[in-house]
Design a protein around this nucleic acid. Structure first.
Length: 708
RNA sequence: GGGCUCGUAGCUCAGCUGGUUAGAGCGUUACAUUGACAUUGUAAAGGUCAGAGGUUCGACUCCUCUCGGGCCCACCA
């Protein structure tokens, strides 16, 4: 054996062998208890990042359970990642001077499809580099025809049962990216704005002053509103104000919604472009004239038509100043809804969209966690989950992008009537399919059951509900809660038993990694340098479940040294070996047949007191590590193993046995080393396998038994 | 405005349901070794566990408050 462990000569070779021998398939333990994890599907078009590297935790669980004899399925897949991917593609288009508007829906879809196909497979090979024992024979893609079919089916069922409805209401719309977003995708940004005080003449002579941050929408307003208890305006309610610039009469109404303390206590009502005003207008039976188009330009005003919102604001303020109607301006902090992709301010626009009625779904989803049918670990994330679900508004699932699953709904061109199918086109020429696609989360929210129903016959029955859903807390709401909601709805059962949450990996200075900051570290480079085992170990060691961590090069170094230490412990054992086994070749690394897999057996066989003591200590180690793994305390397991192997086994025991080695002690030494290799295998699969095979302990450590 | 989370050795962090001298990695100091170990071993220095109060026989660990970071959520124009 070489003096130094060389991961580069080992990892790829071993992974290929594992995969070739079919060890990743649940069929390797056909009679075992089912144990399953669905890999959160990475973006099909993306590259490996630390969020993916944290899936190491899943591999640890899978490898541990596989060794315990369970029938383990770890199911890989990729996501088409709708808006994300289209956004990337549009950037490419821009580079060649084109835009999405230059192509029709079908062509653009095809172009993106081809673009993604070119890059597909990249992420899968990167996951292989981490040693993940995923069953690649069952890999799924969110745009697989059989997956799409099931997604359609869900939509149809929801529609038939009244859980999906089409409605004309305000949505968060990005006029730059040309699509609406769900509430969850909106980024609220605090900005320093201006509050304008504007005088509206009242029919009959007086004035009323309103305060607003959006003067440009004034030309489309339908009312002025005050608080019914506001004495200042008692006499005004019921009269008509006259909209400046357009000279239209609008009523002055009263509603509790207005805060008398704010501004002047009087506001203008713009139902088509403000969420509150939309509700108020509904209540008071007011009209909703839209004055901002999908292109972000003003329309239907006859005064400022064709101007973009920002230009319109300047123009309106100028006009008001001329007429002396602009009373004053004051600085005002406000929270704006912005697009999470392009950072521009979103416009509330009234559009007809598909919505999911969330109420019946959230109730069951909340109950499942409250009743303990699903456990969220660490439990503090349960609060976040409850809080979100309890305040959830209906879910807008229509997206005006092409990259996604097109909604299977058709509109009758003559009657305006809608029909929803499971994907098939209705008969007749009068039906036109909705151009919108589903919110990506609508399809990925069905991932656990749509995958298992389309992999191999019997998979769903055997592996659903899955054992664990392991993911970053950043998508707890967007994804995990949706899977629970839709999963229960379709299957009648929860999609998984435990939700295990991991934290983010930040840069070495504790700052979130982001492309714009330029502080992104590529895990592949670290694997190349330190080896996959070290990267894996460093990610779990010294970090409590669910906590963020900063990338630590010293920890990576320590992990690399640890792999090397293990390697050299093995090397030392081989050096002890040849003198003891008569007639054996000095270069042999084969271990004696007497090596015990059962420590109880070993204890009986051991003669020396120190050997016996060490066997007992190892038994204790097995118990502890197993307990930690069962409780998802990976850091404690890793720390215990590290400490034991290095400071108990190497520093003390090996130093002791060195000088008194005989055949009996050699069996104890190599057997106890084997136990540690097994315990370490889920954490560091490659180095443990390499040593195991060199020692000819068996065919593969992956399929060997977990120490009892 | 609401919620979550963190503040433990110089640095980065562990420390489960409260219980003998508070742990690790890196760093520092001294010695040893380079015939398992691109090193390793032995030993050492280093912490009022953010602060205050409370519960308890006993708190880093539970409760309250304060101070200071971080994150998430939020339709006050």
């Amino acid at each position: 054996m070489d003096k130094v462990y060389d991961h580069k000569s080992v990892e790829e070779k071993i992974y290929k062998e594992w995969e070739r021998k079919g060890y990743f398939k649940p069929e390797i333990n056909p009679k075992g208890k089912p144990y399953s994890i669905i890999l959160p599907p990475p973006n099909a078009n993306g590259a490996l990042h630390f969020g993916h590297a944290m899936f190491t935790v899943e591999d640890i669980l899978i490898r541990y359970h596989r060794m315990k004899g369970d029938s383990c399925l770890w199911l890989p897949g990729t996501d088409h990642a709708g808006i994300e991917t289209q956004f990337v593609f549009e950037k490419k288009l821009k580079q060649i001077g084109k835009s999405r508007l230059d192509f029709d829906q079908g062509t653009l879809y095809k172009m993106i499809w081809e673009y993604v196909e070119e890059h597909r497979g990249g992420i899968q090979n990167q996951l292989r580099k981490l040693g993940f024992s995923l069953d690649w024979s069952r890999e799924k893609y969110t745009l697989d025809p059989d997956i799409i079919k099931l997604v359609y089916k869900t939509f149809k069922k929801m529609y038939d049962e009244g859980l999906v409805y089409r409605d004309f209401r305000l949505v968060n719309y990005c006029t730059f990216d040309g699509t609406s977003f769900s509430d969850l995708e909106v980024v609220n940004t605090e900005k320093e704005g201006v509050l304008y005080y504007i005088k509206f003449p009242i029919k009959g002579g007086e004035f009323i002053t309103i305060a607003t941050t959006r003067p440009e929408t004034l030309v489309g307003d339908v009312a002025v509103m005050v608080n019914p208890n506001d004495k200042r305006y008692k006499g005004f309610v019921g009269k008509s104000a006259i909209l400046p610039l357009v000279n239209r009469e609008i009523p002055i109404i009263a509603d509790e919604y207005v805060d008398p303390q704010f501004g002047t206590g009087a506001v203008k009502v713009t139902p088509s472009h403000d969420f509150n005003d939309f509700e108020v207008a509904k209540k008071h039976n007011l009209k909703y004239p839209p004055i901002i188009g999908l292109d972000g330009k003003i329309k239907n005003t006859r005064v400022i038509d064709g101007l973009y919102v920002k230009q319109a604001r300047v123009k309106v303020l100028d006009l008001l100043s001329e007429k002396n109607l602009l009373v004053k301006e004051e600085k005002h902090k406000m929270v704006l809804r912005t697009c999470y992709k392009c950072k521009n301010v979103l416009e509330p626009l009234s559009l007809e969209q598909w919505f999911v009625k969330v109420n019946p779904l959230t109730e069951k989803a909340i109950k499942a966690v409250r009743d303990g049918k699903i456990k969220i670990i660490p439990s503090n994330f349960e609060n976040i989950y409850f809080q979100w679900l309890e305040n959830l508004r209906d879910w807008n699932i229509s997206r005006q992008i092409v990259w996604g699953i097109r909604i299977p709904a058709w509109k009758n061109k003559k009657t305006g009537e809608w029909i929803v199918t499971e994907g098939e086109k209705p008969k007749g020429d009068e039906w036109e399919q909705d151009h919108d696609t589903f919110d990506t989360w609508f399809s990925s929210g069905q991932w656990p059951f749509v995958t298992l129903k389309t992999t191999k016959p019997g998979d769903f029955e055997k592996f659903y509900p899955t054992s664990v859903m392991e993911t970053g807390y950043d998508i707890l709401k967007a994804w995990v809660s949706r899977m629970i909601m839709v999963g229960i709805y379709i299957t009648g059962d929860v999609p998984f038993r435990d939700v295990l949450v991991h934290g983010l990996v930040n840069d070495p200075y504790g700052k979130k990694m982001s492309k714009s900051k330029g502080n992104v570290v590529n895990p592949l480079e670290l694997i190349e340098k330190y080896g996959a085992d070290s990267v894996r170990f460093a990610l779990v060691y010294g970090n409590a479940t669910g906590n963020d961590q900063s990338l630590s090069y010293s920890k990576l170094d320590a992990a690399r040294k640890f792999t090397n230490k293990l390697w050299n412990m093995a090397r030392f054992i081989t050096l002890c070996h040849p003198e003891l086994i008569s007639g054996s070749n000095s270069s042999s690394t084969e271990m004696p047949k007497q090596v015990r897999h059962d420590t109880q057996d070993l204890l009986k066989m051991a003669k020396n007191e120190n050997d016996k003591e060490m066997v007992k200590k190892t038994q204790e180690l097995v118990k502890e590590v197993t307990g930690y793994l069962d409780k998802y305390q990976f850091n404690l397991a890793a720390e215990r193993l590290y400490d034991f192997a290095w400071h108990e086994f190497a520093d003390k025991y090996i130093e002791d046995v060195k000088n008194r080695i005989d055949e009996h002690s050699f069996v104890v030494l190599s057997s106890l080393f084997l136990v540690q290799l097994k315990l370490l295998h889920p954490f560091m699969p490659f180095v443990t396998e390499e040593i195991y095979q060199r020692f000819k302990f068996g065919e593969s450590i992956m399929i060997d038994k977990w120490p009892a």
